[in-house]
Design a protein around this nucleic acid. Structure first.
Lengths: 236, 236
DNA sequence: CGGCAGTTTGAGGTACGTCAAGAATAGTGG
DNA sequence: CCACTATTCTTGACGTACCTCAAACTGCCG
């Protein structure tokens, strides 16, 4: 069933092939997949799609970091999600067959694999297993959003920022002696948009975390004690 | 394909048959569906399932109103969703094959149609169209959560309460002369859990809305001018 | 050198949380 | 029908956190 053609699967050599939504396809679909498949590089700050664009297919982050942001009529914006390598983006508008409600912008130099809407649609219709995988990505997304809703009504903004920084540290941190440090992939304004506060408040939250002594900031450089990484501070 | 057996479809006479996730099944699956199908009535306050229960299948609200609530370790809770007739509940834990992360409790006398986990699973595997419908319910859920996240970081609690009351009014309101009034299906504590504030704050928000002159409260009775229903007040 | 966007700091007002007490409501048993 | 109790809801007082407006400061790039 997943026969010889698999050596031609465009995701074959991808580090995320095992969990890929495109992994369980039949031989015939590999051809369709290959036809609709393309790769592109994004510079830091470059957009993959804009809010309001019609869906062009399914995108998979292969390298870098993508921010999904919704822009509000009053000029403000909310950062909905950070997408890391292996994650699918655009599936909401793909499954709903609607326009994108977020813009996707690279926070770091990134690489994206795309499957054209028409071909993706054909493959999904022909391979229930692919749809099943997409459904579990949806469930993941629901869980993420749910956690965020709960956090915003049970934790303080300071605590939520601390949680966010620890998660970012696990992804971007490098150990150096008895400290772990990272270069934040987000500006203060992006952090504010992610936590849901004003930039001025974000600046003050950072100062308050600094004065608590656990985090040390210097521009986009953040440092914590190496012992602090895996204990996900449940303080306050 | 959707042949003679359809007259035996357990949802055949349901008001929500057209949009039902179980509508597009083949003849053989109707038998499985019928086998796994059951109905139950819930009194006000009765639970359908508890947080931590393992998934028992897929539930569809047929009458009444169900609250999905997550309970936090500290004794507080968050109301995640109100499910009205025609809506599916339990699909997150069904698709993820995990335990429920919310409890489902009837806010009004309700009726629930259930399909047993084993049978639901068999049908979903045999009918990609069912999975497709489940996926769009997921997308709906993602949209709902997304709107809530955005609202919580762009609108005031007072405005969000006003929005909520207007939505409830559309569902539960009865016109009487030049006013529309409803019996709130939610306690003040539930309203607080839904907006994400303390009960004391909810009480004060209600008083502030009252003094704005648009809403009138008397216990669980809420009244607004009939002209106000369809203009979804964008004030403040 | 001079913008310019991102960031920080200050001052003042508003809204929310918390603790504590009081009022209303519903339910129970005499 | 009336106590009596238990919830639920409201009110007050006070502290903290956030928003807003305004101004200063920091790179950074032309």
């Amino acid at each position: 069933m997943l026969g010889a053609q698999n050596s031609n699967h465009p995701c074959r050599n991808c580090a995320f092939y095992e969990g890929s939504v495109w992994q369980p396809v039949d031989t015939r679909s590999v051809l369709v997949l290959t036809r609709g498949f393309s790769r592109q590089a994004l510079d830091e700050g470059q957009t993959l799609f804009n809010q309001g664009d019609k869906n062009q297919g399914l995108f998979c982050v292969s390298k870098g970091l993508i921010a999904l942001r919704t822009l509000h009529p009053d000029g403000t914006s909310t950062l909905m999600r950070l997408a890391y390598p292996g994650e699918i983006i655009g599936f909401r508008s793909f499954l709903g067959d609607r326009e994108h409600r977020t813009e996707a912008r690279a926070l770091l130099p990134s690489r994206i694999c795309s499957v054209e809407q028409r071909d993706a649609d054909r493959i999904v219709r022909g391979n229930p297993a692919v749809l099943e995988k997409l459904a579990s990505r949806c469930v993941f997304e629901i869980d993420r959003n749910r956690e965020r809703i709960i956090a915003s009504s049970t934790k303080s903004n300071k605590q939520r920022l601390a949680d966010l920084l620890l998660r970012l540290m696990e992804e971007h941190g490098d150990r150096a002696g008895d400290h772990v440090s990272m270069q934040l992939p987000l500006s203060r304004m992006d952090l504010a948009d992610l936590i849901g506060v004003q930039p001025e408040t974000m600046s003050r939250l950072v100062r308050r975390l600094e004065s608590d002594g656990f985090f040390h900031f210097s521009g986009r450089e953040v440092q914590i004690p190496a012992t602090g990484l895996h204990k996900m501070a449940a303080n306050q």
